[in-house]
Simulated assay, not measured.
Amino acid sequence: MEIKKECTLSTTDSKIKCEENKRKIIFINKNRDNVDKITVDDCQITSGLRCDYLVKHAKKEYFVELKGEDIKHAFQQLARSISILGSDDCQLRKCFVISSRSPLASAQIQNVRLQFKRKYSSDLIVKNISFEEDL
């Protein structure tokens, strides 16, 4: 799927923030490279399961879901978003679930992490409230 210009913010800011309802992730852009922050939910994808944001930097993709407590639903949203928007030539892919609180046991999350690694060649990171990631 082609990325819509109206859904994309291209920036060289040192910090790229994705936030919603006190949950946030900040991508640290030390070199001030050009980064695309794509609003997926209700812009790039308007129906069905979808994550909140996709941040693209060089051949790297960072899929973001800012969630309340329904972590299992977040995994489904990320999986569908990757299947629609993921690039074949991606060299690094990471998925982030930033939740208000995670009710899943770490063993359950570990199993889903393995599935994401195998099926989507993606790391899966689940954090509460706030997180920072270097690009």
Rank of each mutant, 00 (worst) to 15 (best):
S10L: 11
C7V: 12
S130D: 11
F75V: 08
K67D: 02
L49W: 10
D13Q: 10
H73R: 14
S122C: 13
D41G: 08
Y62R: 11
Q91L: 13
E69R: 08
T11C: 05
I125F: 00
E2N: 15
K67A: 05
F96Y: 07
S99R: 10
N21Q: 13
R32G: 08
D89I: 10
L114T: 15
K60L: 01
D123P: 03
K56E: 04
T46G: 05
R118I: 12
Q76V: 05
I45N: 01
D88P: 05
K60D: 08
K117Q: 13
S81D: 01
C7A: 15
T39E: 12
D88K: 14
K59W: 00
S130H: 11
I125Q: 04
T46K: 11
T46L: 05
E2M: 10
F75G: 07
D123E: 14
M1G: 09
K37H: 00
E61C: 05
L92W: 14
R118D: 14
Q77K: 01
A107G: 06
R32F: 02
Q76P: 03
T39G: 07
V112P: 07
K17E: 02
G68S: 13
V97Q: 02
G68R: 11
N21E: 14
I26F: 06
T8G: 10
L78T: 08
L66E: 06
E19T: 11
Y62S: 04
R118K: 15
E6D: 14
D70V: 05
V126H: 03
F131C: 11
L124A: 09
F116W: 08
A58M: 12
K22E: 14
R50S: 12
M1H: 10
K59H: 01
S121E: 12
I82A: 02
